[in-house]
Structure formats: structure tokens, C-alpha cells
Design a protein around this nucleic acid. Structure first.
Lengths: 335, 335
DNA sequence: ATGAAAGCGCTAACAT
DNA sequence: ATGTTAGCGCTTTCAT
């Protein structure tokens, strides 16, 4: 037995329109009617069909989020904050794991568009500008998180990667390190590029020389962090310190150092970008650049929902970029 | 300008039915027609409206997942595996953070039902049996993950918590520890209860005495792990070893031990349930009970999708419970 | 204050 | 091989 709005209407002795009004808390319904209808709804255990409602209203109360890697604490924190804020505002979340793969990202963008989500929060690979613009033109709000995309105009929430990275390397230099290696991720992502730039600037700033043997680029994942560290430790130019530019690579880096039988900070100094929750219990508590990760997701969602409600693509007249600051947390992973 | 199936049909000179057939790769369409229609689709950049399709087909190609805490590596791994498998099978994922709160869980169950998801993977609080049954009766498939709910009949995928816990404590005993504390989570969740049972059994098995001062129950989160460890270390009966029964509490436990200025394993031995990715780089690499977390999510999703396709509530004639084994990984956090 | 009816975009049963 | 059309369950405009 199917229970829909028609069943309720019939049993209550009113039209579907009236039931719908009760459902929507529409003011112009007699109190008596409302009570009666609500009683029937409860009695029949009726619950609206959100799919039908979405089709009719052209609104799904759904936000899509595409992250690069839910396994990473960075992105699961983002997922948490976006979910918290979305729920508070009556939205639900479709979670997509883009895997930092432009093709997978495109696939998910299409799915989200087809599913008529009200908005999308995207940690972009940087590669699907055309389609992202197409989505924005179609009226779906987009907010970029953590990274930018060339040629896409929409609100964004970022972290000051350049400064964070610069600060980290400056700190290493101040501790007397001379051969500072860099372990980074894709430089075609803005995060990867800016963190590298910050490193380069800090090195040059102090009259040290950029040594390309000390710059290793991976894919932001743990395994590549471990592999690249191993390469560094076995290479011709062995670093006296490493700046690792994301949380997962840092973990890989620490594992590789441990496997090599080296001690931190006696044999090598480490600073990581992003401060993991395990940083304190590490062999030598990790000195790190802390990012406001939760806030990042929160802000992005706030802006997205505001734009959805205002029926505007941007929060102002033109796209705004919010850049959040980082802070250096000094522990014991350097001398 | 709205582009829908009608627009495409008109421009192509065919009916909407034919366009729909092309979209669905329905065999009985002339090759010529197909080509023509596809050309128009491409030309107009037409993409189906999945909301309308879902309404008509009574199928959303969506799976809902309710986890207790995305922030925990345990659940983000689950989210990853479920997403991987769902995507492979053409399903998308609505992610809900139940927060181990029965009310929030109920709220999300209602949302998922209303949104006509094809199936739900649930890490239950154990409290909403009636509504879960209601969902199952309504034809939505449910698979329970990691925990059970009294009075709910559906397929489940679990880990052998009892045995895992038993093994861990037995190991501690074999290493000569006499005052072994237990740090656990809600005992009204099956995981919490079974892990406590395993502990109790192992203690009694060896003729040791259960000391209630050494049993501390929290909420599965890091903070409570730290707090309870602090209580233990400052209490009347100071343990010589701690078995911590989930990944987040273990981290809290290690932090508290470090804060207290104690060393592992010199001052105190530790075994944790669930093996975190940072276990190797901890001060003293953590001895842990490793669970097949990714597999857990994978199996659950496999079963769910199979049930959806078979249009059955259970994979067999009656609910099946799959229990996955654990393994003890010995490192250096005990003497 | 309430009802009648159109229609959101699609699919599928039936007809040709 | 293709078209016609009803209808999925809801909201909303227009009447009354």
C-alpha cells in the first residue's frame, strides 16, 4: 500500500494542495484543518517524497563535495565541517572522492550537475575549468576550497600556502640548517605550486642556493612521501632538514626516516605543512605549520549556502577569495 | 533556455521516447537514429535530469551511509571503501555523520528514506530498531556495519571484537603484566560491549582479578581516551598496562601518557584495538589489533548492492552476519 | 481558506 | 523502429 500525499488528502477530506500547505507550514490554513491533517499524517506515518518535491521545486537541498582523498585527515576534517554546517542549514551532502584525478573529477561534476545539487564545494585538480564554468552558468553555485582553477570565476576559500611554507623554511634556516630539502605535491595544483614558491623564496632570501636535487615532487600521498624521503636519504646530496608540504607526505617522510634508522632531530630536522593530531606522540613531536582546516570547510559552506539563498554566483559583485592564515607550531623535530 | 529531453527530441526530429531509448542504450534503435540523436545531444550539451529520472524509475542510484564520526580514521576508511565500491557500481553516496547520537541517527534515517536512497549502510547506535525495521519494510535495503541492533533483521558485516580484545589482553598477560586497565567506549554498542567482554574473559581466564577501578568507559573519542588515562594514572590503582579499545581513544591515551612524563614500554605497556597509520612513528611503535577496515566497508557495500539488484532484503533466506577476523601486530609498546 | 489542475522531466507500457 | 501518452508525487498558480 503506497502512502502519498493523495492518500493523506483523501483520508483527511481535503485536497492535496491543503496537505502540501500543512507540510510547508504555510500560514493560511485553518488551525482545525492543520490539526486534522497532521493527525492523519502521523496516523498513516506519511513522509514526503523528497525526490518528487525536488523535481517540482527545482531544489534538492543537497550540496555536493568533491575532495581529493577522504582518507587524508585534511579532507575528512573538511568533510566533517562541511557536513556540520550543511546539516545546520537543512542541506545534505553527496560525498565524492575525486582522487586528485581530473577525469574522475569531471565525472563527478557531471553526476552532481545531473542530480541538480544546489551547490558544489570543490577541491579542484585545476583541470576542468570549462565544465566548471558550464556548471556555474547553469545556475549551480560553486565554491572552490583550498585550491584555485585558472579561468574559473567563483568564490574561493584558501590558506596562505606561500606564507606558511616561507615561514616554515625560514624557521629551519634560523635553526642553522643549510641543506633543506622540499617534499611537495603536484605543482600544477595551486597548493603544490605556492608551497614550492614559498620554499624557494625563503631559500634565496637567505642567500642559500636552490639545489634541485633537494626538491622532490610527489602526489600528496603517504607512499610518495616515504619514497621521496628514501631517495633523498640515499641520494648524492643528503639534506640536513626536510620541509614536507602536506600531512600525508609528512607521515610517509617520518616512516622513511625511521626505517633508515635515523633520529629526529639529531640526524635530520623536519617541519611539516599541516599539523596532524598525532604530532605530539611522534618520536620527536612534530614542528608544523598549522592550518585552520575545520574553519576552511566551514567558511566555504557558509559562503556557498549564502550564495544559494541569495541566488547569486558570488558573495559580492565579483568573486571573492578568502585566504586564511597559518601558524607555526614549534615542537621538537628540529634542533 | 532550458534544454530537456523534449528539446532534444524536437531538434532531432524524433520522439522523447526514442531519445530516452538512446540515452538508455536500448537495443532496438536504428543505428542511424542513434547517431543523429547523439549528435544533437552533444550539440545541445544535453544531460539527463537525474531527479526526474529517479522519480519516474523509483530508483535513485544513491546509497546513504551513516557513520559515527568521519573524523576518525576508522570511519573515513569506511567512507572511502564504500565510495570506491559504490562508484564502481554506478551509485553515489550521501554521507551522514550520525555522531553516535541516536536522535541524529534517526533524523538522518528519515532524510535518507525520504530521499528514496536505494540502500543504507549504517554503523548503528543500536537505538532506532523500530524505524530501521520500518525502512526495511518500505523496501530500502539496509546493511549494518561494525555493530548490530537488537531486533533488526538484516545483513551485517562485523569484526570479531571479542576475540580481538581477548587476544590483546592475553598478549599483555603473557608479557607479564598484572594490572591491566581497560579503556573502552559505550557498552550499549555491540563493539563496546564485546571488547569489554573479551577483556574480562582474558583476565579471568588467567586467574587474575577484575578490578573495576581499572575499567574506564568513555565515548570512543580522543578526548575521553586522554581523560580516562589521566584518571587511571592518578588513581589509587595504577595500571602497569592499558588496553585501549579504539583508535581514537588510543591516541588520547598515548597523549596523556606523554603528558604525564611516562615512557612506553618502560613505565607502562599499551595495546590498542585498531591499527592507526601513525603506529610506527609513535614514540614506541604501537602494538595493536589490526582490523580489516577497508574490507569491512567493501563487503558491506557489495552485499548491499547485491541485495538491491536481487530485490531482496537479505543475501540469503535469512539475514547473514559476516564476521571478519583481526590480527595482533606486535611492535614495541609492551615490554 | 480551500480546491482544481497543470506540469516539473523523465520512462515505459502500449500502440502502430 | 518509433511514437503516443500516462503518470511518478509533489507544489503552486489560479479560481472560488
Amino acid at each position: 500500500m503506497k502512502i502519498n500525499i493523495k492518500t493523506v488528502a483523501k483520508k483527511a477530506g481535503f485536497s492535496t494542495a491543503t496537505v502540501s500547505r500543512v507540510l510547508a507550514d504555510y500560514p493560511g490554513v485553518k488551525e482545525n484543518t492543520r490539526t486534522k491533517v497532521l493527525a492523519i499524517i502521523k496516523d498513516l506515518r506519511y513522509e514526503v517524497d523528497s525526490v518528487a518535491r525536488s523535481l517540482r521545486q527545482r531544489k534538492t537541498y543537497t550540496i555536493g563535495i568533491i575532495v581529493s582523498n577522504v582518507l587524508s585527515p585534511f579532507y575528512s576534517t573538511i568533510a566533517k565541517s562541511v557536513e556540520d554546517k550543511a546539516r545546520e542549514s537543512g542541506y545534505k551532502l553527496i560525498l565524492c572522492n575525486g582522487d586528485d584525478d581530473p577525469l574522475k573529477e569531471l565525472e563527478y561534476l557531471k553526476i552532481l550537475k545531473s542530480n541538480k545539487v544546489d551547490g558544489i564545494i570543490l577541491t579542484p585538480t585545476g583541470k576542468n575549468a570549462e565544465y566548471i564554468n558550464n556548471i556555474i552558468e547553469s545556475g549551480i553555485n560553486v565554491v572552490l576550497l583550498d585550491r584555485l582553477v585558472d579561468g574559473v570565476k567563483c568564490d574561493s576559500v584558501l590558506v596562505d600556502n606561500y606564507k606558511g611554507s616561507f615561514t616554515a623554511v625560514k624557521y629551519l634556516i634560523s635553526r642553522g640548517y643549510k641543506k633543506i630539502a622540499f617534499i611537495g605535491g603536484y605543482t600544477d595544483r595551486t597548493t603544490g605550486r605556492q608551497r614550492l614558491n614559498g620554499y624557494n623564496k625563503a631559500i634565496k632570501d637567505d642567500g642559500l642556493k636552490i639545489n634541485n636535487d633537494l626538491i622532490k615532487i610527489g602526489d600528496f600521498k603517504k607512499e610518495s612521501g616515504a619514497r621521496l624521503t628514501k631517495e633523498l636519504l640515499e641520494g648524492a646530496h643528503i639534506p640536513d632538514a626536510i620541509f614536507s608540504s602536506n600531512i600525508d607526505m609528512t607521515l610517509g617522510c617520518l616512516i622513511a626516516i625511521k626505517n633508515a634508522g635515523l633520529s629526529i632531530p639529531e640526524d635530520i630536522g623536519i617541519v611539516g605543512f599541516d599539523d596532524p593530531d598525532w604530532s605530539i606522540i611522534a618520536d620527536s613531536p612534530l614542528t608544523a605549520i598549522s592550518q585552520p582546516v575545520y574553519l576552511l570547510g566551514l567558511k566555504a559552506t557558509e559562503i556557498l549556502i549564502k550564495n544559494i539563498n541569495d541566488k547569486k554566483s558570488f558573495s559580492g559583485n565579483k568573486p571573492s577569495i578568502i585566504t586564511l592564515g597559518t601558524s607555526l607550531i614549534i615542537r621538537n623535530s628540529t634542533r
